[in-house]
Simulated assay, not measured.
Amino acid sequence: MSGFDLSGLTASFGGERVIGPLSLRIQPGEKVALVGKSGAGKSTLINLIHERVNRESSLVPQALGLVNALPVFHNVFMGRLDRHATWYNTVTLVRPFSSDRTDVRALLQELGMPEKLWMPVASLSGGQRQRVAIARAVYRDAPLLLADEPVSALDGPMAHAVMELLKNRFATSVIALHDVEMALRYCSRIVGIQDGQIALDDHSERLTASDIMSLY
């Protein structure tokens, strides 16, 4: 993989520019944390990157994008809908194939909720719903992970377990994180966003939490 060269990223709302124009090059194997205060443009930037790379990304949006009426299994399976023929997806809606059931259950096991496989998403807690969105992204297994505050609804131990899982499963990632310590611990590069522009871009090993807090 040659990496992702993202130039000319820009977004406006109501005639007012909120992001960019900015450029971001992501090298293969980089784990990038997007940091900055609420409203700085981190979520918008994640969405812009997703639009640019599209099918090459596994996305965990902040709004999660789950279908409440469907069970956990089908929400996770959606990560690979575009990899199967229409007939396969239609059959799966009624009677999933055993290999897919096994794969999704194993993923839920890693996330501490295998017993939720056939539960409707609407019945889950906020933290469980977030883990379903994470499972869908991991199941997709795309070259680039894009995640917007993926552990915001999880307690300490589970948040660290999920960040470890994402670190191990995706060689290359861009993760928007509010938690500076988490960003320094699990990401190799810190990109700070301020007023829609890149205000900081450095290797995490060269930074401390206080270096990043000036963005907040």
Rank of each mutant, 00 (worst) to 15 (best):
A159Q: 11
N75L: 12
L64Y: 12
G196F: 08
D155Y: 04
P96C: 13
L93T: 04
V72L: 10
L81S: 07
R105K: 14
L111V: 06
T90G: 03
L154F: 01
P150V: 04
L111Y: 02
N68E: 13
A199Q: 09
A122K: 15
P157Y: 03
L66Q: 11
L154M: 02
D103Q: 15
K116C: 11
L93I: 07
L117P: 02
G196P: 07
D195C: 00
V104W: 05
S98F: 03
S188Y: 04
R95I: 04
M182H: 02
D195G: 09
Y186Q: 05
A159T: 04
V174T: 07
C187I: 02
V151M: 03
G196R: 00
Q194S: 14
F73A: 08
T102E: 15
D201L: 12
G112Q: 14
A153Q: 13
E149L: 08
M119A: 15
V104S: 09
S204R: 01
Q128D: 06
L200E: 07
D141G: 08
G126F: 06
V151H: 01
I193V: 14
S125G: 08
L165Q: 01
K167V: 08
V72Y: 09
L177S: 08
P143T: 05
N89Q: 06
D141Q: 15
L184E: 02
I175F: 03
S188K: 00
N75W: 01
A171K: 14
A142W: 07
L93P: 02
R131M: 12
G156E: 14
V174G: 00
A122N: 10
R169A: 10
R131L: 06
D195F: 11
G196W: 03
R189E: 09
T86I: 13
V67A: 13
A147F: 11
L144R: 08
I190W: 00
S173K: 07
M158E: 13
L145E: 01
F73Y: 14
N89T: 14
V138H: 13
R105S: 10
P120T: 15
R169T: 10
G79Q: 02
R169G: 00
I193T: 06
P120Y: 06
T172A: 05
P143G: 03
L64M: 11
L66N: 08
S98R: 14
E110M: 11
G127K: 11
P157T: 00
V180L: 14
V174L: 03
S188T: 15
D202K: 09
V151F: 02
L93D: 06
L146P: 07
R140N: 04
S188N: 00
V191K: 09
L124G: 03
P71V: 09
A153W: 02
T92K: 03
F73R: 08
G65H: 11
Q109Y: 11
E149A: 07
V94R: 15
L177P: 01
R101E: 14
Y88D: 14
V162P: 04
E164R: 15
R140I: 08
F170P: 11
R95E: 01
D148P: 12
P96I: 04
S123C: 01
A85S: 09
L111A: 09
